[in-house]
Amino acid sequence: MVTTKELPLKEYVLKGNAACAGCQDMVALRHAHKALEGDVIQVVPACCTSVVQSLWPKSGLGIPVLNTAFPAAAATASGVKAALKAKGNNHTQVMVWAGDGGTFDIGLQALSGALERRTDFLYICYNNQVYSNTGTQRSGATPLHAQTTTTWYGKTEPEKMLDLIVAAHEPVYQFTANSSYPRDLYDKIKKAQEIEGPKFGHIFLPCPQAWNYPVEKGVEIGKLAVETGYWIMWERVGDEFILGKYSKRYQDPEKRKPIEEFLKIQGRFSRLFKPKRNEAKIQELQDYVQHRWDLVMKTFT
């Protein structure tokens, strides 16, 4: 893994961007762009990332950014890639940077089409598990029992297993990552850059605004997602599955921290603990952890 000292010094996420304090999206973006080193065209559908670039005529990102419509990220990227190809440019990476809403929900069709066409691009879904841009409405990535402004008493369904949907398209490279492990993310983006064909990265990232936790707790919560086994770090090169070193030890349920540790510091799960602890619902989320492990391991190994 890249050492902190080896990370390029050049910054592409510039000062003065408009992100909230403690925004983990910026952490992920910063490391992704350090890996790509500027030879990239970034396509961004409506989401927080379309706002944090700051206001016209300024830009908070030192790379070319094409903002596009909410459902259209992968289609727009297909066009960018085709134009580069038509002009004989085969080195610039086309990268989508989309939220979970723009990926799990409204952008899923375009994503499916672009993957099926074997588009040579890197699609990143940064998953803050909610529509943050529009003020915390539930998405297809919002977990069971999380409170949002369209599920005030908690969501009644768990998130969809997007990774399995993507895997069904057989991308050349697929990975999960987490903003609390930025050097791991850096390595994965670097690796993606080396491989031609459709690539998909799924980054889990806490959002202080929507998850309602103290801004300094972002890294801790991201780590708890892995340490409770809730989020699994893995890669898939072709059909070779690699369980990430950060998640390996949590394959053993005995080693996992209880899901409660992840839940209780987030305001969005407050109803699980107040006014009265709801054991049954906490257990449902605990069970979901194992469910995801079973599904992922059964599908990929």
Binding site: I41, V43, L66, T68, A69, P71, A72, A74, A75, T76, A77, S78, G79, V80, K81, A82, A83, L84, K85, A86, K87, Q109, A110, S112, G113, E116, R117
Partner: peptide, 27 residues
Amino acid sequence: KGEFIRVESEHSAIFACVGASSTGART
């Protein structure tokens, strides 16, 4: 001799054109 993208919908057709045209291609 150009590129031809067999998209999965008209929404994607026009946005692929938007992406390509934004990258300087005649679409």
